[in-house]
Design a protein around this nucleic acid. Sequence first.
DNA 1: TGCACCGATGTTTTT
DNA 2: CATCGGTGCA
Length: 774
Amino acid sequence: MKEVPKTFLESLNEAQRDPVLHKEGPLIVIAGAGSGKTRVLTYRIANLMASGVDAFSILALTFTNKAAREMKSRIAELVGESEAKNLWMGTFHSVFARILRHEGEKLGFPSNFTIYDTQDSDRLIASIIKEMGLDKDIYKYKQVRSRISAFKNSLITVKAYYNDTDLQEADAMSKRPEMGAIYKEYVDRCFKAGAMDFDDLLLRTNELLNRHPDVLAKYQDRFRYIMVDEYQDTNHSQYLIVRALSDRYQNICVVGDDAQSIYAFRGANINNILNFQKDYDDVALYRLEQNYRSTKTIVNAANSIINHNQTKIDKVVWTANDVGSQIQLNMLSTDAEEGRHVASTIFEHKMQSQRKNSDFAILYRTNAQSRAMEDALRKRDIPYRIYGGLSFYQRKEIKDILAYLRLIVNPKDEESLKRIINYPARGIGQTTVDKLVVASKQFNLSLFETINKARELDLKFNAGTLLKLSDFTLLIQRFQIENEALNAFEMADLVTKKVGFVQELKKDATPEGIARIENVEELLNGMRDFIEGQEELADATGSLSEFLEDVALATDLDKDDDPNSDRVALMTIHLAKGLEFPFVFIVGMEEDLFPSAMSLNTRSELEEERRLFYVALTRAEERAFLSYTLSRYRWGKLIDAEPSRFIEEIDPKYINSIKPKESYQYKPLMDTSIFENESQPKRFFKKPSPKEKTITTPTPTQLKKLREIDQIKPSQSDQEPLKLIEGMEVEHARFGTGIVQSIEGNGNDKKAVIAFKGFGVKNLLLRFAKLKIK
DNA sequence: TGCACCGATGTTTTT
DNA sequence: CATCGGTGCA
């Protein structure tokens, strides 16, 4: 093992060095925004390893898988790749899912249990409500789901629920006396399906550790050093897991910032961090208060905001950085105007200070706000990437394929089965499925077993239906046999072909339909990449179940696209936690939007919104831009808006309020091409001028046409396909660089045959292929 | 049983 | 605006 370089410790300030050198016993690090807490965690782990602690006995729980990966690779730089690989590092959900794969059988779960996502849970709850004959307007499945989730996160099991008269009364008061019954049925059905939802991954881990002292002892002994990042956002269930695991050795290190607690809505309990010192004996407390990220203006402005909160640990975040520019505040008339303003400000700063697209981030409170930003960026030919929102794996066509794959791995998975039993249509309709569900309950079989035994159970199906049903089970069973020998990619490829997904999707020739086919291709490509990635890992097999677990717990942040793509980042503020950007735009600074209208009822909810604003502002390194509009589209209607109360809470000396200027009035109805021509000529055939070349350092991508499928409307004049010439070098978002071999067709049907390095020859419809000319 | 159309309904935030 | 579930017809 490599020695940790001396310079490594020397590069830390004193406040950072102390917790890094603290080896044994509990410690808490209260770390202000931008104070280098990730560094502290990273160095501490490296230091432990360098002083002889086995990597296998270190557990580090992070908030995202991306954070875990980044930390791991930094540690690898310090102590060597092979040792770093042995660290247990990941989100609570992924680490304990892995443990439950090994130990879940003790709780009656198969090792290949399915992980239900929110949508699966919603569907199951909706069908339970329907089966129970309850009024769906009173029992709204989303409300029911979040209530059940809250139960689970507080470790209120079904049994505990029925022992708690207060809870039952509360539900009776809100006219939902059947809540407990739904909860019970939901838990039973998940169990029968061999499925766990996100909350179960934590709840069942607690159950495992409680009921099986031997298992608890095993993992206590294994994880002698435990570290938890973003501790302020842990919920009760996570808290108990950490407590149980660290109980024996007490080598527990938690890092967090109460001012950045923004997940109360999903059960995060700020008291976990506030009370940490009471939970363990002789807790060492370290504070990191020096901010290295942002300018004085940003740090001080953020402090002035958070001071409006009553509940907080007192700390003074300060910085030695420059004062920097004032925060710029802009008022715009509509959300479209706001988008234009942001896009042109980005454009101007790129020109003025030679910035990359990836130096800019646009942050918003709700995903729906991304639309206006996208439109504006696209018009300005500024490449961007949206994080979050409807993630790739949530798309219908992708979920359909995944449902087949999930069913193959776990035939008890009821939600997957119901999803695909009649897709593509094979004559098994709702009535049949309903009967099967009833029968499966009656005979206490899984839905799949019920179908499999439909004949012998003497269900009243006619011969035709019985045949269709047995065809279906046969199909799945054949896949299961194939799955023994094939890896995840081969399996998905086989399923896609055998089931005829692409043919099915081809029936829909609309742009959306074609986009779906592209998505299916992307899924398969992604799976192949996954297999290649897994081959490098010692304990990975590349099996389908491995892939499915990866998918279930992957966040959108995890899906890194090619590293040399230079794009503006668009995301919700929640997703931006832990990230930093030189230039940050916080848009939609309006009452009822930010703070959200849903949060105005209680002080604690409002304070969480304020912390969210604090998080947003402290993402900025150099400059922050705030904007609000006078009216914006919500639910398709133009709604009047007024400025957010948070704007007034910023000490005015840090703000530069800009009145609408001539330069931002683009006359919305004007043909945008006029504008584009004067500032950003479409020079597809010329090489970029030297001046522009200096703007983006690695690849001058910003002038290249970025085409997004969902934006294409055939009637629009600017939708003319790229002017390609044979022999031209082009870049595709997925396939990388390729050479145009030939071009055929005209107008909307214009296609190009392109040979890609490593991906072979593809025939692409130019309307939809996201091509850029190199 | 399948498909096309209709209206109602909902938006914070996510592992 | 976009998705969902329900209805009515083939």
